[in-house]
Design a protein around this nucleic acid. Structure first.
Lengths: 201, 201
DNA sequence: CACGCTGTCGACCGACGGTCAAGAAGCTAT
DNA sequence: ATAGCTTCTTGACCGTCGGTCGACAGCGTG
């Protein structure tokens, strides 16, 4: 009778711990490599309690992502006073720095994204906005330019994954590769380009 | 007693029909949008019989892919006598033609690929080989060139999906965009390039 | 007509995401 | 101390999923 059957926590505290645990677990395992029952067991609570705090596995996952996403957004947010090309360069550099730090999580996220519709929508929305920003900043309107930028975003993911897997050259060079490829893609799409944006290196 | 409880089919015939049905269903719905029970119901048989012919859902899926994949490989296989750049151009053109014809299936495949490990491995293997072929054909050895080509393969998928979704310019222009971007990516990676490959258009 | 081959099925399994009403921890007022 | 109240927590349950198994039944053969 003296030992309580379970330890009781404050709503906020429990939620905080669950988010923290989720952040760690979802960077180690992809979304569908881990079940809610396992997570609950890992947290030392029942599955029902986990569902008491988060209405579904997807929402739990998204909530877990939100923290890191906010930090990423803050770091990548470019200085609005910079001219477009420099702004893009700076944002891209910050983005690569973040990936270099959180490479595990980045890889697992890309793997999970395909499975969770809600995450796919979020990523899709971000991409739409990014495409729009780039297109207006270089003043391109042709359909092919849109396709070029969209494809380039995929290029980024693929190149980053390959770089993470090998890490056999400098981040600076990756940045040059990305910027140079964007330039090449826009040129190949027939878009007009800002005069002579000399790339680093 | 006069009406049989079920119609009995030859092993080969049943298998053929199931593959045919699978090909159609998996182009309409992605891998995890449809269950084995639904497929069996659609085929007018029991789930157990479906599993009698295919040991798992994954293997069934892969088997349905095999037919189309074989055709694709045949159409894309380049003339070995052509010089590298022309060979690539021809293969790419054939690839785009195939995508234009099978756009639904292509989109659903890319969506399913992320979920089915076996398919991911197959795609990964094909990509490895493609990267290798391109790298040797342009005689590039730097790590960054490898990353450039890998990224470019992602670019292709992204650009093709965008093109499929909009179809607001000619296939020929998409081909130019892809080739031009590959050129740009290789250049940006610092790889030496074959002298003056003038792109179509 | 019996017999065997094998194509076929209903019933079952563990694991999954998700739900529910009941119970127990811990605070407060008496 | 204890009764009562709030709310944090739980065990048991549901439907569906991919996958398995022993038994039945259609059909060609002697």
């Amino acid at each position: 009778m003296s030992t309580p059957a379970y330890t009781r926590l404050q709503n906020d505290e429990r939620r905080r711990r669950l988010l923290e645990l989720g952040t760690e677990l979802f960077t180690r395992h992809a979304y569908d490599e881990i079940s809610m029952a396992q997570i609950a067991r890992e947290a030392g609570i029942s599955k029902a309690l986990l569902y008491h705090y988060f209405p579904s596995k997807q929402e739990y996952f998204v909530a877990t992502l939100a923290t890191g996403a906010e930090e990423l957004r803050r770091r990548v947010e470019p200085d609005p006073d910079l001219p477009p090309v420099e702004a893009l360069t700076a944002a891209l550099d910050a983005y690569l720095a973040w990936i270099a730090e959180n490479s595990e999580g980045y890889a697992k996220l890309l793997q999970s994204a395909a499975v969770v519709p809600e995450v796919r929508e979020i990523i899709e929305t971000v991409r739409d906005a990014t495409v729009e920003r780039i297109l207006t900043s270089v003043d391109a309107t042709q359909p092919a330019a849109r396709t070029a930028v969209r494809g380039w975003l995929w290029f980024m993911d693929g190149a980053c994954l390959d770089w993470i897997a090998h890490r056999d050259f400098e981040r600076q060079q990756l940045l040059g590769l990305l910027l140079g490829t964007l330039l090449g893609a826009l040129t190949a799409s027939g878009a007009a380009l800002p005069a002579g944006p000399q790339l680093p290196r």
